[in-house]
């Protein structure tokens, strides 16, 4: 089964508009790896195996948390920012299941923070990588797929 980019964009649009009350656009901007970044990830197991990732700079992560908690970005604690980022990628992954074979299970989300790191799931490769931006703040949504043996 092949996921299409348009499937992922549609799901991100729903999450951004309904949950965050934000818009986004396609961009050529990338999330610079030399700066501190945050990546949330949910893995999927079952008849389709892979992972969904969301990567952004802390500033956008703070805005996402603020939108979810109904506070100012500066008021969101680091735990709240991680919680919010994890929940956003969880929603994206959960909705992707509509396009996948039955029997796929989601992991709980995890969040990685730092500079110059790579998030990898052994045995997978990048199926879809979207470069998007909200009010000029870039973020990247990735879908990793386990390679066929």
């Amino acid at each position: 089964m092949r996921l299409a980019e348009s499937d992922v964009v549609q799901i991100v649009e729903a999450v951004w508009s309904s949950t965050l009350d934000m818009q986004f656009e396609r961009t050529t901007l990338t999330v610079p790896s030399a700066e501190p970044t945050m990546t949330s990830i949910v893995q999927m197991t079952g008849l389709w195996q892979g992972a969904v990732t969301l990567r952004c700079l802390p500033e956008l992560a703070g805005r996402i948390a603020a939108a979810m908690f109904g506070t100012a970005p500066s008021e969101a604690s680091p735990d709240e920012v991680r919680d919010a980022l994890g929940e956003v990628v969880n929603m994206i992954a959960g909705n992707l299941k509509i396009h996948l074979p039955a029997g796929c299970q989601l992991s709980l989300p995890a969040v990685v923070e730092g500079r110059e790191y790579r998030v990898g799931v052994p045995g997978t490769s990048v199926l879809i990588q979207l470069s998007l931006a909200t009010d000029g703040h870039p973020f990247m949504v990735g879908v990793l797929e386990r390679n066929a043996h």
């Binding site: 948390a65 979810m68 709240e80 919680d83 919010a84 929940e87 709980l108």
Partner: peptide, 13 residues
């Protein structure tokens, strides 16, 4: 919900 953010959103909704 294990997510505090989501509990807040559910309450708000």
């Amino acid at each position: 919900d294990d997510s505090k953010a989501m509990r807040m959103i559910v309450a708000r909704t």
